[in-house]
């Protein structure tokens, strides 16, 4: 009789352990979707807002946006990493990125704006080549971080073009001896407690590209910015306040 009771107790204790393992020690992984949105100082911006002179920079220039696409790399949610994501606002592509099998609990959300030098290898990404996102070899090759094209009203109130193209900064003073500076930058959006399938909004405030810390004067810096060493460093500095965490929906 004692033996039977002992056996019974052992079975109960083992089955109890199983339950505990399933429910508490290894919670079920969930899916996380990043969504990329844009705004101008809080006012949402999408493709329908393009080609209209409706935004005013900190320096006072009225601009219209014609094209805006940018690249984020090494996107990390907890331990999961996606190599890169090209977001094209005008074509409404790349605006969602799914992560599967994310562990429940606190997860850090980080990414790099553009490619860090170690990833910025010339011509190796077929999908980016296919959409002509490359940087010319004379500027060191690799890929754009961002192509932001539009128009502004110049001092004569005439439409003028700007091509705010961010790339790895290159000093071409001596074309035979190019000096590079990695102007990609990391963005850490902090720790997010994830307890279920989750959608996380990553916001880009476009106005910040013209604002902080460098007040951008489009009458001076408008086109041919890719080979402009100083302009690239200014873009990088301004970019650091562009991204922020938006809504987290669980």
């Amino acid at each position: 009789m004692k033996k039977i009771i002992c056996l019974f107790l052992i079975i109960i204790s083992f089955s109890s352990c199983n339950d505990e393992l399933d429910c508490c020690i290894y919670p079920k992984p969930v899916n996380v979707t990043l969504t990329f949105t844009q705004n101008w100082d809080g006012v949402p911006v999408n493709a329908s807002d393009f080609n209209k002179f409706k935004f005013t920079t900190k320096n006072g220039e009225i601009i219209s946006i014609n094209d805006l696409r940018y690249l984020l790399s090494n996107l990390k949610v907890g331990r999961k990493i996606k190599n890169y994501q090209l977001i094209n606002i005008g074509e409404n592509t790349g605006i969602r990125l799914n992560f599967e099998q994310i562990e429940q609990g606190v997860n850090i959300l980080k990414f790099t704006f553009g490619f860090a030098d170690t990833d910025n290898k010339d011509g190796i990404y077929q999908d980016l080549n296919s959409v002509s996102f490359n940087v010319p070899g004379m500027l060191g090759g690799g890929y754009h971080y961002m192509q932001f094209d539009g128009k502004y009203k110049d001092v004569n109130n005439q439409d003028a073009s700007f091509n705010y193209h961010a790339i790895r900064s290159v000093n071409r003073t001596d074309p035979a001896n190019l000096i590079f500076q990695d102007t990609s930058f990391d963005v850490d959006l902090g720790a997010i407690k994830i307890t279920n399938n989750t959608t996380i909004e990553i916001k880009m405030n476009i106005a910040e590209w013209f604002k902080n810390p460098n007040t951008w004067n489009l009458n001076e810096l408008n086109t041919v910015l890719m080979p402009n060493f100083e302009a690239q460093k200014m873009m990088s500095a301004n970019g650091k306040s562009v991204f922020s965490l938006g809504n987290v929906t669980q």
Binding site: D122, N129, S132, N134, P136, M138, Q147, N163, V224, M226
Partner: peptide, 18 residues
């Protein structure tokens, strides 16, 4: 063709990588 300060053709017309 590839120089943004000159032709700047590559933004629309491909390159050695496209």
């Amino acid at each position: 063709f590839m120089d943004e300060a000159k032709g700047d053709c590559f933004h629309c017309h491909g390159s050695d990588n496209n």
